[in-house]
Simulated assay, not measured.
Amino acid sequence: MTKNRPGSGQVRIIAGQWRSRRLPIKDLEGLRPTTDRVRETLFNWLSGYLTGANVLDCFAGSGALSLEALSRYAAFARIHELQRSAAEQLQTNLATLKCDNAEVIIGDSLQLLNRPADKRFDIVFIDPPFRKGLAAQAIALVQQHGWLNDGALIYVEVEAELHGLPLPPQWQPLKEKQAGQVSYRLYCYQEEAN
């Protein structure tokens, strides 16, 4: 995130139809946009899977992950964000990009996920505020309530010191890296566990 004035910042879209676009984001407590370097690695992992994918961004914050996916031709993104001002900024940024294939839902992602899925997703981003135990809860709810298409890819970003994240047996680890205080991982959901 680059600062341009007190109280706000920017997020840069790395590639795709909106490549190099810089969009304003709110400077809010707990808002921790995924760094360009981590996003570049993640989207290298996801290349070949994004075009036409339905994306669920569980803890959107700046929206960097869902905006990047949409820029790279994801078909649709559902974006959950708890903080109203961050969600409103996301809606403004989507309007600026003339993007009409995304919906921003203001609310607690754990509550939103704790109900039977009304849609299944191909790519899910779980990048919650650190040190609150939210990743494990979101993983359980996404699995329990049927939010995943068979073969879905799930990205989980957590604090580096967090070990032993409980995973459903249907989730196969694909990739894992660490950058400073951040551990980031990619899983594949298979309806029939091996």
Rank of each mutant, 00 (worst) to 15 (best):
D108A: 01
L46M: 10
L50G: 11
D127C: 02
L94D: 06
T35G: 14
K98E: 15
F121W: 01
V124S: 02
R120Y: 03
Q144I: 02
Q83I: 04
L50Y: 11
Y49C: 08
K119H: 13
Q144A: 15
L153S: 02
Q83C: 09
S47I: 13
A102W: 01
L56H: 08
Q143H: 15
D57N: 10
G107E: 07
I106G: 04
E88V: 10
R39E: 10
F43W: 11
I79L: 10
N44I: 09
T35M: 09
A86L: 03
R39Y: 04
R72D: 07
L31W: 10
I126D: 02
A69M: 08
D150Q: 07
I139Y: 11
E81K: 02
G146Y: 00
F121V: 05
L134E: 10
G133Y: 07
S66I: 01
N93C: 08
R78P: 01
L56Y: 00
E68I: 01
S62N: 09
R32V: 02
L50I: 14
I154P: 13
A117Y: 02
Q137F: 12
S109P: 06
N93K: 05
A74V: 02
G52V: 01
D122T: 05
V124T: 06
N44W: 09
D57H: 04
R78N: 10
L134T: 12
T34A: 11
G52F: 00
N101Q: 13
A135E: 09
L148A: 03
Q91Y: 05
P129E: 07
H145F: 14
P33E: 08
Q89G: 00
W45E: 10
D150H: 02
G61E: 06
A117I: 05
G30L: 09
G133C: 08
N54H: 13
A60C: 06
L113D: 07
E81N: 00
V156Y: 09
R84E: 15
N149R: 13
A75K: 14
H145D: 08
L134I: 12
L31C: 12
L42V: 15
P128L: 11
L110F: 04
D108F: 02
D108N: 14
L134K: 10
V104K: 01
L67G: 09
R120P: 03
I139F: 10
Q111M: 13
E40F: 05
N54D: 14
Y49M: 08
L113Q: 07
A60R: 01
H145E: 11
S47D: 11
I126F: 09
V156A: 12
A136G: 13
L112E: 00
A140H: 15
T92V: 12
A69V: 03
N44A: 06
L50E: 10
V156S: 07
V55W: 00
T92W: 13
R72Q: 06
N101R: 04
Q91F: 03
D122L: 09
L31P: 14
A53C: 04
V55N: 01
P129T: 10
E81Q: 05
N114E: 15
N44H: 08
L112N: 08
G52T: 07
A102T: 03
Y49Q: 13
V38S: 11
L90K: 05
F59E: 07
A69H: 05
D57A: 00
R39F: 07
N44K: 06
A87V: 05
R115Q: 15
V156C: 12
L112R: 00
G52S: 00
R115Y: 11
F43Y: 03
N93W: 02
A102Q: 04
G63A: 01
R84L: 15
P33F: 04
C58V: 14
